[in-house]
């Protein structure tokens, strides 16, 4: 059987979902028999070098770079999976969704109690920096997402079961204890 190809990325996430992925422990040795990694922080490949079977997306979209990267993943992956609460519903970054963007920046760079030296009251505004979006969007509101794995982070067991199901084409096992939102 030809090896399936996997790519992963973290958008507006904390890399906790990737850490949970690594919690499959020694089964990663079994996984590497079944799949080959392409663009992913796990092997540090920066650009897609071929069409990928399965893309795992951690984190929602909070800026223009997230959107660009997500669209790139959609183009290059046959199946796209949102894993983790941030990818599914915005998560922790989405707590800013009720606050106007100006107020957020003001608090973060000028008024906040932990702001140090910023006497000229400069807000970051360079064309090299990605633009912040008006709010944080779940990935499936930007591109089509095929599957969702909830959890903060998703349990390693859930990620493992999903990958096994996607690679072998068998139906996924979903025991009650592995599908949790926290």
């Amino acid at each position: 059987m030809e090896k399936k190809i996997i790519a992963t990325t973290s958008l507006a996430g904390c890399f906790g979902c990737h850490m949970s992925f690594l919690d499959i422990d020694e089964r990663i040795l079994d996984l590497i028999e079944l799949v080959e990694f392409n663009k992913s922080p796990i092997d540090d490949i920066k650009n897609f070098t071929k069409q990928v079977d399965i893309g795992l997306i951690e984190g929602g979209c909070c800026n223009s770079e997230n959107i660009e990267l997500l669209k790139l993943f959609r183009e290059n992956c046959n199946i796209l999976v949102s894993f983790g609460e941030c990818a599914i519903m915005g998560g922790l970054p989405a707590l800013r969704n009720g606050i106007p963007i100006e107020e957020c920046l003001q608090e973060a760079y000028i008024d906040g109690p932990t702001v140090g030296e910023n006497k000229q009251k400069i807000l970051p505004n360079n064309e090299e920096l990605p633009m912040l979006l008006d709010k944080v969007y779940p990935c499936h509101e930007i591109v089509k997402i095929d599957y969702f794995l909830p959890g903060c982070p998703p349990r390693a067991e859930l990620i493992w079961n999903a990958l096994v199901a996607l690679v072998t084409g068998k139906e996924m096992e979903l025991p009650y204890e592995v599908v949790k939102f926290d």
């Binding site: 609460e85 998560g91 922790l92 989405a94 903060c152 926290d182």
Partner: peptide, 28 residues
């Protein structure tokens, strides 16, 4: 609403969340 389970004190004891688990809600 804004039901952000990971930061909620009631998570694990919440009936809305428990119903979502029972009915296998992966995403709304």
């Amino acid at each position: 609403g804004n039901h952000f389970c990971p930061a909620c004190e009631k998570s694990g004891n919440c009936e809305l969340q428990a119903l979502a688990y029972r009915f296998k809600m992966m995403v709304p």
